[in-house]
């Protein structure tokens, strides 16, 4: 007499898939934050008739503590021109957009040299602002 062998079902356990996805997401969020400046504290200045800005190749920010950031990393005005030039490389016109986020109370002494550095590095300056609806 031949006994039939009981067939075992082999399945890949999928219970942990959600946890894996969660951990991957956390990993990529942390990685993305390193080049982001969303954690900075600043209040945008207000202006009339603003428009949607082109995607940024470089993001520069001056926060409410007067600190200067290049793509989320703290830097100094002296290094800024070289950093922008290096980052923009040989990008064609139209893709050399530099977003400038400046806290509304920042003094000219601080932000004008930054604007000059962007200009001399060949960046296409866009001031990030809030719309003044009044």
């Amino acid at each position: 007499m031949k006994l039939s062998r009981k067939k075992l079902k082999v399945e890949v356990p999928s219970v942990a898939m959600g946890d894996i996805a969660f951990n991957l997401l956390v990993f990529f969020v942390i990685l993305a934050r390193a080049q982001d400046d969303r954690h900075l504290q600043w209040t945008p200045a207000r202006a009339r008739s603003i428009e949607s800005a082109a995607p940024a190749a470089v993001r520069i920010a001056i926060d409410k503590n007067n600190d200067l950031f290049f793509n989320g990393m703290k830097t100094s005005v002296g290094q800024l021109k070289d950093l922008i030039t290096q980052r923009l490389g040989d990008l064609p016109a139209g893709k050399r957009t530099v977003w400038l986020k400046v806290h509304d109370e920042t003094a000219a002494l601080r932000f004008e040299p930054v604007i000059e550095a962007i200009s001399s590095a060949g960046g296409e300056l866009v001031h990030i602002l809030d719309e003044d609806k009044e």
């Binding site: 603003i50 800005a53 866009v126 001031h127 602002l129």
Partner: peptide, 15 residues
């Protein structure tokens, strides 16, 4: 992610 992403473009002539 509701950071402002609109503003004003400014063309500054080279010094």
């Amino acid at each position: 992610s509701t950071q402002p992403d609109s503003g004003r473009k400014q063309n500054l002539p080279k010094s």
